[in-house]
Amino acid sequence: MWEYTDKVRDHFLNPRNIGEIEDPDGVAEVGSIACGDALKLTFKLDEDKRIKDARFKTFGCASAIASASALTEILKGKTVEEAMAITNQDIADYLGGLPPEKMHCSVLGQEALEKAIENYRGVSHKKPDEEIVCVCFGVTDGEIERAIRQNHLTTIEEITNYTKAGGGCTNCHEKIQAIIDRIYGTKRPWEQPAARPKLSNIQKIRMIEETIEREIRPSLKHDGGDIDLVDVVGNRVLVATRGACATCQASQVTLKGFVEQKLKELVSPELVVEEVEP
């Protein structure tokens, strides 16, 4: 079950401004039934060019209905210029926040608002030079970029939560990553793992010996077993089993699951452990 705020629940159970204005000044329809949510927004201006009435119709989940209801409440009394400045975050804030996976409901509201204002101003909806990146949900590179910039998104998962892009077949993940990289530049120091110094062979063998001695052997001895390091060939660590390990059916599990994991973690992630006859 989703953790919805009381405000979301209230706007879902008692939605404000359902319906369609006849002869509206601005109208827009976004989303689609196939994608799981859709929103039709209409608004009417008064003599002072302020939004007198705004109404919605929504197909979607509780947070989609609540976001649309919130949007119409926010809009009332605003000039078109003021309305232009409303972001998806404003909608989410008005509702006391939305679960991360549901942020796309607020984005849908903002998209509807943008299109309705374009419709009022008589501007064409078509954004030239935008390419569909996510085929499953029909999301363009421009929409992804706007969501990244407005909401400071840094991961594919976040972008899926906000725009749905990448939430279907996942084939577009590389393209989405490329957009993230382009916007932030490929250098994102907070994501780079701390570089490991390159090891010489001597250093590597010494570290393997130390790790076996300090981290591995005590555990094995506890169970009456032991291993000997026979050789290191490139990244292959050749070991022989002793004591209880030598006769144990599960020694392969120990070698791969315990010894190799420890060496990968503490020495180098490329290492593989192989058992050889002593």
């Binding site: 879902f12 799981g36 949510d37 197909f59 979607g60 989940c61 509780a62």
Partner: peptide, 9 residues
Amino acid sequence: FVEGESILL
């Protein structure tokens, strides 16, 4: 024409 989560809630 209606969505499951809304029905459930």
